[in-house]
Design a protein around this nucleic acid. Sequence first.
DNA 1: TCCTGGCGTTTAGAATATTCAACATTTTTG
DNA 2: CAAAAATGTTGAATATTCTAAACGCCAGGA
Lengths: 188, 188
Amino acid sequence: MSTTAPSDDIGTRLRLVRQIYGLTQRELARRAGVTNGAISLIEQNRVSPSISSLKKILDGIPLSLADFFTHNFAASDQVFFAASELTEIAFGKTVSMRMVGGNLKERALQMLHETYQPGADTGEEMLRHQGEECGIIVAGSLIITVGAQEKTLQPGDAYYFRSDIPHRFRNPGPAPCLLISASSPPSF
Amino acid sequence: MSTTAPSDDIGTRLRLVRQIYGLTQRELARRAGVTNGAISLIEQNRVSPSISSLKKILDGIPLSLADFFTHNFAASDQVFFAASELTEIAFGKTVSMRMVGGNLKERALQMLHETYQPGADTGEEMLRHQGEECGIIVAGSLIITVGAQEKTLQPGDAYYFRSDIPHRFRNPGPAPCLLISASSPPSF
DNA sequence: TCCTGGCGTTTAGAATATTCAACATTTTTG
DNA sequence: CAAAAATGTTGAATATTCTAAACGCCAGGA
């Protein structure tokens, strides 16, 4: 039992969270039913708020006390990613993936833009890992095997399965196959 | 981003935690550098402590604010388990396991008392999953394969490996093999 | 039985947090 | 550019929490 403790600089933390949510001290104060002055003093660490005050304030965001103390609110958390910013991952010469938010920490989700060149195959020794995954074919076609089932998917088709069921992806066609996938928790 | 929020009944929560850790108000107050009266008032919800006070108090346990707000401190959390209370899990007719704390929630750890009957084998298709695992042979003997390595373990021998390395357990001997294992995170 | 020591609780007063209203500064707008 | 609106900060008054010391209660030991 030991969640990593965030800094106890409550003031900076609150200011950060408030700004991430795009609220002014006055707007948050109004929603929370406290005064803007109180929020100002707290954010400057000139007072240490009571739990009841902090709770009221966080309710105005809204955000639970648990989340407030648990999560790492990095101001640098990127929200938008240019195509060129996606981190590239290659598996052999036939499979490559472009990951959304690879630089983020504490991701609960992994989204990939995958490319399977003609002939690409994740291998006879099926993949197995924890979590769940799903995806939608964007271009080309792909043969997906999941447990005892196998199907050729065309653009627009999709899949969803528990990742602990052995699975395999193959592109038999003459054209590259593009697909967008999501999985949780991230496997890399 | 939404950790389940525990009750905001800070008083009861603090009292519960304090008692779980076997501390009196006075002892905790001494460690935390606050007065026993303050703790009494907080536990009765007659005041809402400041973050700084609550932090000082939790430091005396010690417990982080994040953990305090995150975890579910069920007073009923069982600590001791009679052999008969271990939850039984069978895989085929040759492998069975007895799990410690199967009824607990939020386990970070899984401990099993495993029995491999003569001839038992987890299968040629090696096991792979997230986390790490280790164990000690209690009786009989067992052939364990981990990646490229393979070894016959005797009572007292032990193993430790990252569970994502393909692994396999076999009991070739004429006698049942007993072992105790631990893994994290729990795989079931 | 009457102590003694430990427990949680309570109360008055000191310390701290919060409100209210005003201020200085920046941003928006005509 | 000037006026108006919005933002964060501050000081004095109020409200709340925290301390220090006492209280009542109960379990064990002479």
